[in-house]
Structure formats: C-alpha cells, structure tokens
Amino acid sequence: MYIETSDPTYKTSLFNAIVAPRPIGWISTLDETGAPNLAPFSYFNGMSATPPMVMFACNQPADRDEKDTLNNVRRTGEFVANLATYALREEMNGSSVTVPHGVDEFELVGLAKGASRCVKAPRVAASPVAMECRLLRVVDFEPEAAGDRRSSVVFGRVLALHIDDAYLDEAGRFDMLKARPLARLGGFTYLAVGDVFEMGRPKVAAG
C-alpha cells in the first residue's frame, strides 16, 4: 500500500493506529475566573529530563476557536499533567466528553481535586503521579490544505512531582506495572502497561 496524505482516501485513523501507543496526558487547568477544567490528550510525551519538560498537542475543535484547556494554558501560563491509569480509565474517558465552557469535569466524573503547590491548577488526587507545569511556549501550526485544522503544541517545564508512595518500590523507582498507565492506539482502542523488560545500552560498539 502506498498513499499520500493529500489523497482523499487517506484516513487520519490509519495514522493514529500506526503512531502508537501514545501516552495520554490528562491535563488539568483553571480559567482566568478560577473554574477548573480536565481533559485527556493522546498526543502527549516527555521532551527532556534535564530540564524536565513535557508536551501535549491538540487540534482546533469543530465547535469553537480552541479547546478550553489550550485557552486556559495561554491565559494562565500553567497546567498539571496527571497520569491516566487503568484504574482511572472510566474517569479519564468520561472527562473527554464535549461540554459547554465552565463545566467542571472533575465533578462531572466524580474525581476529587488535589491541591498543587507551585501552580494554581488542581491535580487529580487519585492519580499516582501529577506533574505541575509552567508554560514555556505554544507553537501553532496553521492549516495548509483543505481539511486541515489548526494544531497547537504546548510545551511546559515540570516544576514539581506529586508521586503516591504506594507506587514506589524499595529502591525508590516508580512501579509502572502497579500503576498501569494508559496509552492510546487507533480508534477507540487503548492499552495498559503489561509486560516490561530491561535492555541495557551497549558499552562498546558491535564489530
């Protein structure tokens, strides 16, 4: 199969299924009036450990100029990235519903808010990990072809981590198998972390 992305038969679902699994960034923010917002983003990842940075990306929605999360981040300069896990899968999915501006997704899906320390935005109290972030920049990519929507990539510096001690092993390492973070595949398909293995980096080049 060969297909160019400008071809009318090209489907974004095919791209999403290939570029996978993708970690889910469960992003909590406040608007300028202090109203909370919580939404999952399947284009999310860490960018660097030194300095610690994360990113998430979103497309312009069909019903408004931009998503509430993005608008909040632009206006307040901060957000919290919460770890979406298998145990919280229903709440994560429920928080993705399209609702009018000002609706509190925490209350909508029955999640308690946890206080942050470096930013004002709340965190998901039940999540094993929450990362308080300061906005570094937003990069907007404007449409180039028919059918395109504006895509915005948000970069944030991690200021602080909230880690539930129950998910740390005796050596102080985060237990991924216990937390079972969620990742997005194609369509409505997800996976949770299962088998893991270690593979050390070679010290001497082969040959």
Rank of each mutant, 00 (worst) to 15 (best):
V97H: 11
T50P: 12
R117A: 03
L182Y: 04
K11V: 15
D164V: 13
V158C: 11
P100F: 08
L182W: 06
E142S: 13
V97D: 13
V193T: 09
T98Y: 07
S95W: 05
A20R: 03
L191G: 09
L159T: 02
P36V: 12
D165G: 09
L182H: 00
L70E: 04
P51V: 02
V99F: 12
Y10A: 10
A115Q: 12
T9W: 15
D31L: 13
F106P: 03
F174Y: 11
E78N: 04
T85V: 05
P52Q: 04
V80D: 00
N37H: 14
L38M: 10
L161A: 13
S13C: 09
M199D: 03
M53L: 09
P143C: 10
S127H: 02
N45E: 09
G34P: 12
G147F: 15
I163E: 05
E198M: 14
A179M: 03
A39P: 04
A179T: 07
L177W: 08
R74W: 10
R150L: 14
D63T: 10
F174L: 11
M176P: 08
R134S: 08
G94M: 10
S13V: 13
A20V: 01
N71Y: 04
Y167L: 06
W26I: 02
D164L: 04
N16K: 12
M92V: 07
I18Q: 13
P40W: 05
S13G: 06
R201L: 07
H101L: 12
L14C: 12
A84S: 01
R134E: 01
D140V: 11
D148Q: 10
T189S: 15
A130Q: 07
P61T: 04
Y167T: 08
P181Y: 03
D148S: 10
F79P: 00
F44W: 05
V54G: 00
E170A: 15
